[in-house]
């Protein structure tokens, strides 16, 4: 497992196993998050992302192994003390039935912070998150975006040494989500906060994280720097999860086998539609998909399927639909065949 170490780890997992209902749902042999780093956890549904986060946040008991925060193993009575150096933001803002300002101050009150200091901190974060005008509002009167801002203000107000974010913006509409991600990115940078982020959104991970861990069935698939992971997935399983097409040359037309001689992953952006017949390959559109302006074409190429991405507007302009024959070319820089690895 690749370790990226630049400074002291604030979070360490050693041979951690979590079992629930007699089933092992998490097995992390080794993992560490260094001070100042932002680690994103990606993985399919049910892969153990939230279990990992809850375990790291000392909110879920482990069956075996050791979780250490700030160099200290979390056991028994030390858990509350260690947890008080962290903050957690869940998908559901889970605001308490009290006004916004008190919601922000309550975590400080748990830490015996004086009322004056609580007031100063809440004031600072109300202003910072642009929710000063909502300080007396009750949670039920807030929009989804406003509630998330309050939960972020509450999390940052205690100056956490480690911040846990469990899909904090997944329930928001794309516009509000995009704005919140931008704000969070700036906050993390300005405060230098170490964070662990669980997300389904690859672009969110790319924007916010320095490192990414991909989980499958509770086990580490790949841990790498964000750039390395998205550009060089370590194996076909990770590549397929990241949206690469995994192709076996045996099922490809002969011409294409020249550029794809081994089982390989092709990045969707490396597949481009073209009108040129020279240097291009024929395919048939078998499905058109899209979300948030990004379109995806599923192409039948020989016996294999290859995905290509292009803007939805372009798909509509070309009137692409299942059954249509097209020609495409492949940027060889977007092909990974792992022949040089291991």
């Amino acid at each position: 497992m690749k370790q990226i170490s630049t400074s002291d780890p604030v979070l360490e997992f050693a041979k951690v196993r979590v079992r629930r209902g007699g089933r092992e749902v998490l097995h992390i042999s080794e993992l560490s998050v260094d001070e100042g780093a932002v680690l994103a956890i990606l993985g399919p549904n049910g892969s153990g992302k939230s279990t990992l986060l809850l375990t790291a946040a000392l909110l879920l008991p482990i069956s075996e192994g050791t979780v250490s925060l700030f160099g200290e193993p979390a056991v028994g009575r030390s858990e509350v003390r260690l947890r008080r150096q962290t903050s957690t933001v869940f998908q559901d803002p889970a605001l308490l039935d009290m006004d916004v300002r008190r919601n922000i101050e309550i975590a400080l009150a748990f830490r015996n912070v004086s009322s004056r200091a609580r007031r100063e901190q809440s004031e600072r974060w109300l202003n910072r998150l642009g929710i000063k005008h909502l300080e007396k509002a009750m949670p039920h009167a807030l929009s989804g975006g406003e509630a998330r801002r309050v939960s972020l203000a509450r999390a940052f107000a205690i100056h956490p040494r480690l911040l846990f974010l469990d899909e904090p913006f997944s329930a928001l509409d794309p516009e509000a989500r995009s704005e919140m991600i931008g704000d969070l990115r700036q906050l993390l940078r300005d405060e230098g906060t170490t964070a662990m982020l669980v997300t389904h959104d690859h672009s969110e991970a790319q924007l916010l994280a320095d490192q990414v861990l991909v989980l499958f069935d509770g086990v580490q698939g790949q841990l790498d720097s964000t750039r390395a992971l998205f550009n060089f997935p370590a194996n076909p399983e990770v590549a397929a999860f990241l949206g690469y097409s995994i192709v076996d040359p045996k099922g490809l037309p002969e011409l294409l086998r020249i550029v794809v001689p081994r089982i390989s992953a092709i990045h969707p952006a490396a597949v481009r539609l073209t009108n040129d017949t020279e240097g291009s390959y024929s395919a048939q559109v078998i499905a058109v998909q899209g979300s948030h302006g990004d379109g995806r074409l599923l192409l039948a190429v020989g016996e294999e399927k290859i995905t290509a991405t292009m803007p939805v507007d372009r798909i509509n302009e070309l009137d692409l639909r299942p059954g249509i024959a097209i020609r495409f070319e492949v940027d060889t820089g977007g092909i990974i065949d792992w022949s040089g690895s291991g």
Binding site: A57, L59, V80, F90, Q91, A94, L96, A107, I158, F164
Partner: peptide
């Protein structure tokens, strides 16, 4: 809501503070 229990503990509440807030909610 189950998340509320987690959130209160995540905020650093000890057992007494947790019970007080749950009762309050």
């Amino acid at each position: 809501p189950p998340t509320l229990h987690l959130q209160i503990r995540a905020m650093g509440a000890n057992q007494r503070q947790y019970l007080w807030l749950i009762t309050r909610e």
